[in-house]
Amino acid sequence: MNEEPLLSVQGLEKHFPVTKGLLKRQVGAVRAVDGISFDVMKGETLGLVGESGCGKTTTGRLITRLIEPTGGTIVFEGNDISHMSQGRLRPLRRDVQMIFQDPYSSLNPRHTVGAIVGAPFRIQGIKTEQGTKKAVQEILELVGLNPEHYNRYPHEFSGGQRQRIGIARTLALKPKLIIADEPVSALDVSIQAQVVNLLEDLQSELDLTYVVIAHDLSVVRHISDRVAVMYLGKIVEIADRKGLYEAPMHPYTNALLSAVPIPDPKRRKERDRIRLQGDVPSPLNPPPACRFHTRCWKAQDICRQVEPPLLTLAPGHQAACHFPENAPSGSAAAAPQEPAAAPAD
């Protein structure tokens, strides 16, 4: 881990202003992303999980610089791209690509598959040795589509095949980093597995680095090397896959894991569940200090007054909680006092 990270995000913020009144004064801001930091190493997959409104999609759009951050820095391959102009971002657009959730609306219905997958070549003005068509057909084959379907239109394909077309498009320019925003959640179960496997194959074949944004914890566990859990614009826990799923430290991570329905009817009675009350609060007016305290069964006064910093509690395992679970004793954030452990319900 001595090498430079491919992508390094420090204190990233995105606030969307909210205006009100006669003069459109700014009265507040939706703190969609509110100071998050993480690194992504070359060749690894980072999973970003969280519920709606946690800022995971905004984070993806920030990294690809589809939107400009209000604070913090994004460093890609040693270059600070946080506030680069669109013109100077052009080379970056080759290296960082995005896969979208909905394979129906993200493909132009009036363009052939060849035109869609070949578009990046034309836009970036790249000449390929054997011609664009040949290059496109090779990519189609790579993602498991029939190269002879070059002249077909998106509507002639099923949902899973469309998602393959979307993936083919991102691969055209041999990117280094791919941001996949809910890449499988719009697909049927059997197709999800095909696409997950495809993403994994492509990663090892093309030496890709992924940031996978998803709400499905099981998919994220399957595909990621490291996982970051987001809640209301903050990262509450980040760790390697094994650490996060087997010894989660943040109560929110625990609650998320415990909420996932398990396809095993025998276990539904024996499981010890944590049930959170209510919905995620609005990011317009997030709770002060620890943002999770309104739903946390372990919350004490300190949680309402002091925001817990994201601390390294075990090697490669960071969590932002005053009363972390599964933390090795004597760690930096050892609880100031024993918390009441009983779940609220």
Partner: peptide, 23 residues
Amino acid sequence: LLGSMPRLDREPTERLLPIKGSP
């Protein structure tokens, strides 16, 4: 269907076992 699903209650498998083709 069972092979297509990653599961939290088991050790992660190396690869998912999808059904080929589309519905």
